[in-house]
Design a protein around this nucleic acid. Structure first.
Lengths: 214, 214
DNA sequence: CTATGTGAACAGCTTCACAGCG
DNA sequence: CGCTGTGAAGCTGTTCACATAG
């Protein structure tokens, strides 16, 4: 739908940023915004903004720019976040707990509705994120996926366990994995994977600094 | 040094992944590895691996591949992580606390040696990451930066405060910022910024799923 | 015979520049 | 005029294919 053209991966990532910025403009009661203004807020060129949005349809108005209240729901629809989505999380360590209570997810329509862990000592314990939830064993994943129509899962277990748990998630019916373990997951290509390697980001900064010391 | 050529940004990011994978091979007592093997473990082509490494120097041995024990320290040196680095963190909420105790940082040579927060109720409280530390007020940042020779900072405050705190970090002498707030920081170009927007990653997965439903 | 390093070909993304519309 | 949408140009990054080395 929309366009049969091939959409660049970076354009999709920026689409999320446009949405975030548009929401900020909306909160400031801004009615319209030009590609130049949107670009400046995100350190992008105006041409980049126009080209990106044009991949997905014709949203602008010549001479006016983009109507904020009109563009936001369209972008949400494209990203598939126009309706709230249920998400599960595996690995209730420090990071996992922080992610469950992270408001940024719910703000964008993602709700963590089930949490799992291998540690028997943790199973049964209560957590309070956006809604209260009980830590379950990995064996209960399939049932939870069906019960809550879950398609996305967050993987926050130690590296050594990550591949095995990822396999279990896929078996349970998860279609997309947000991976926080610093390993490359090998999964069926029909399953989407997005990895966040926190140390990699620090290393990138470290690299940029070498060569321009104090 | 090494090469005066222009190095692609994606190549630097992959360099971190090569390091991670090489460390895994080392743990498995693997002495040498070919570009093909390294690539397979990371879902990359062999040509990509060779080209990437070649940007930084000549590390391989024809007919043999790359010696693991030899390549690891060289990559660390390139990334600037051959010596431990001190890092500070601002924003001791759920996410901030999780990051302070995140082992992945110390594993790659990054140590959080100072933590700051605006909330007077939190200031003075003790935390235990790799080393115990006391939460300080933002005003104490400059002194900490000088005392511990800190160059990198982690920003884990709410979006509304992020830009202001980032400015304070730069004033305090921070040279690179790892930003977890879902906003685009506007800082002096001499300061490196790397942003991790957790919700964006879920949105990317959501997008990939739309069009290939159950 | 295996595996690197690399110029050359290719593909993909971004910028430019302008026609067209309100 | 102001601003979008878009072909065309330009640039950056990836893949190919092979000369070369052990």
């Amino acid at each position: 739908m929309s366009k049969s053209e091939n959409i660049p991966v970076p354009a999709v990532r920026r689409l999320s940023l446009y949405l975030r910025q548009l929401e900020t403009f909306l909160a400031n009661d801004r009615l319209t915004v030009s590609s130049k203004q949107l670009g400046q807020a995100l350190c992008l060129s105006d041409a980049q903004v126009r080209k990106d949005l044009a991949y997905f349809g014709q949203f602008g108005h010549a001479g006016i720019g983009y109507r904020v209240g009109e563009l936001i729901p369209r972008v949400r629809r494209i990203l598939g976040t126009d309706k709230p989505a249920h998400v599960l999380l595996v690995g209730v360590g420090n990071l996992g707990r922080a992610l469950i209570s992270y408001r940024g997810f719910s703000k964008q329509g993602f709700e963590v509705v089930a949490a799992f862990d291998k540690d028997p000592a943790k199973i049964g314990r209560e957590l309070h994120g956006s809604t209260a939830l009980r830590i379950e064993s990995l064996g209960a994943m399939s049932a939870a996926v069906r019960k809550h129509s879950i398609r996305l899962g967050i993987l926050a277990v130690p590296s050594s366990a990550a591949q095995g748990v990822a396999d279990e998630m896929v078996t349970a019916g998860i279609r997309g994995i947000l991976n926080f373990a610093p390993v490359t997951l090998q999964v069926n290509p029909s399953v989407a994977v997005s990895s966040v390697d926190l140390a990699v980001h620090l290393e990138q900064l470290s690299f940029q600094l070498t060569g321009s010391p104090s």
